[in-house]
Simulated scan of single mutants.
Amino acid sequence: MPLRLATLSLLILYPIAWFAPLMRAGILPIFGLSEISVITGLQALWGSDVFLALVVTAFALFAPYLKTIGLALVQWDLLDPRVQPVLHLLGKLAMADIFLIALYITLAKGISYVTVETAWGLYLFTGCILASFVLGHMTERQLRSGNLSA
């Protein structure tokens, strides 16, 4: 049961992570720093680059959430366990978003007049993605042993 509850908790934590501040950025700290979340970043992207916005939306919102829903359905015996490879692929796509955020922070820190500080939402979002990987692996192991009583 704890495995199932942990998976279901991700369905609550992901939306919190999407609205939580990932970073604070601005031109020189004396001008103040704007908080950037997954959602505010997506809003800005939709206004400037629709293709990139679609890609990031798929990585940041749909991939991790669909993987978690699928994992919960497998754990509750409502979805065939043979979908595990697809869920694993969705998890990899979700991790790509963390890479994009890290790349953005690294590039922005390289510009001398820009200040970027990581915020608690980045750690929450990363933790959700990593927890999803661990829960997926644990579910897979329990399925192989025939003991998915979670």
Rank of each mutant, 00 (worst) to 15 (best):
M1P: 14
M1V: 12
P2L: 10
P2F: 04
P2N: 05
L3I: 07
L3K: 09
L5E: 11
T7V: 11
T7F: 06
L8F: 14
S9I: 00
L10I: 00
I12S: 10
I12P: 02
L13V: 05
L13I: 02
L13Q: 04
P15S: 01
P15F: 00
I16M: 06
A17V: 05
W18H: 08
F19G: 07
A20F: 11
A20V: 01
A20L: 10
R24E: 05
I27R: 03
L28Y: 15
P29G: 14
I30Y: 14
G32K: 08
L33N: 09
L33T: 11
S34Q: 14
S34M: 14
E35F: 12
S37M: 03
V38R: 01
I39G: 05
I39C: 01
T40C: 13
T40M: 11
T40W: 12
G41L: 03
A44P: 03
A44T: 07
W46Y: 12
G47S: 13
S48D: 10
D49Y: 00
V50Y: 15
V50Q: 10
V50A: 09
F51P: 02
L52A: 13
A53D: 04
A53E: 02
V56R: 12
T57M: 07
A58V: 08
F59Y: 04
A60N: 01
L61P: 01
L61Y: 04
F62W: 12
P64L: 00
Y65I: 11
L66V: 13
L66H: 06
T68L: 06
I69T: 01
G70C: 03
L71H: 01
A72W: 15
L73H: 10
L73G: 03
Q75D: 15
W76H: 09
D77E: 13
L78V: 09
L78Q: 09
L79C: 04
L79F: 03
P81A: 10
R82A: 11
V83C: 08
Q84Y: 09
Q84R: 15
V86N: 13
V86M: 13
L87H: 06
L87E: 03
L87D: 05
L87F: 06
L89V: 09
L90C: 12
A94P: 02
M95F: 05
M95K: 14
M95D: 15
A96F: 14
A96V: 15
D97G: 09
A102Y: 15
A102I: 08
A102W: 11
L103S: 10
L103Y: 10
T106S: 08
T106I: 14
T106W: 14
T106Q: 06
L107T: 07
K109T: 09
K109E: 08
K109R: 08
I111H: 09
S112Q: 11
S112Y: 07
V114D: 00
V116P: 03
V116C: 05
E117G: 05
E117Y: 06
T118H: 05
A119M: 02
W120G: 15
W120A: 13
W120C: 05
G121N: 02
Y123W: 12
Y123F: 10
G127P: 03
G127S: 04
C128Y: 00
I129M: 10
I129C: 12
S132Q: 08
F133V: 12
F133C: 03
V134D: 04
L135R: 03
G136W: 13
M138V: 12
M138T: 07
T139I: 04
T139R: 04
R141E: 12
R144P: 09
R144Q: 15
R144K: 15
G146H: 08
G146V: 10
G146W: 11
N147I: 06
N147Q: 15
L148N: 06
S149V: 11
